[in-house]
């Protein structure tokens, strides 16, 4: 690998070729949520929608649990996952709070503190 991408950054999964292969079906489903009709279809019948995109068991379970860290571990890319999160009315601060195991208010306070 030309860069030093393989050296881990704590709490960070770089979306590389391995993740892109692993998460292809999940990310393809999330990409489809650019369309309002597809979002409605997912809400109407989540099981069928996930099956149509061929999600594996790990991906299906992560979607069922609305768990961002599990979705990332299953190959999800945050830009596509954000479209899935939008269906559930979650913004990036909800996602941040969930991933860091804190409340949204505490997460926002942490962001504010970074400016001081």
């Amino acid at each position: 690998m030309p860069d030093d991408l393989r050296r881990a950054i704590p709490g960070t999964t770089l979306f590389d070729g391995a993740q892109a292969m692993k998460g292809y079906a999940l990310n393809k489903m999330c990409y489809s949520f650019n369309s309002a009709a597809n979002r409605a279809e997912f809400k109407r019948d989540e099981d069928s929608y996930c099956a149509r995109y061929g999600l594996n068991a790990e991906q299906r379970e992560a979607v069922r649990r609305r768990n961002v860290l599990d979705l990332i571990a299953a190959g999800g890319n945050v830009y596509y996952l954000a479209k899935l999160a939008g269906i559930f009315g979650l913004d990036v601060q909800d996602l941040g709070a969930q991933q860091t195991g804190t409340t949204k208010d505490a997460f926002k306070a942490r962001l504010e503190a970074a400016g001081r």
Binding site: G11, T12, T13, V68, L69, L81, L95, L111, A114, G115
Partner: peptide, 13 residues
């Protein structure tokens, strides 16, 4: 900024 992972919320002024 960082949106994803346990490091979400990272900012480096």
């Amino acid at each position: 900024h960082q949106l994803d992972g346990q490091r979400a919320g990272f900012i480096n002024k």
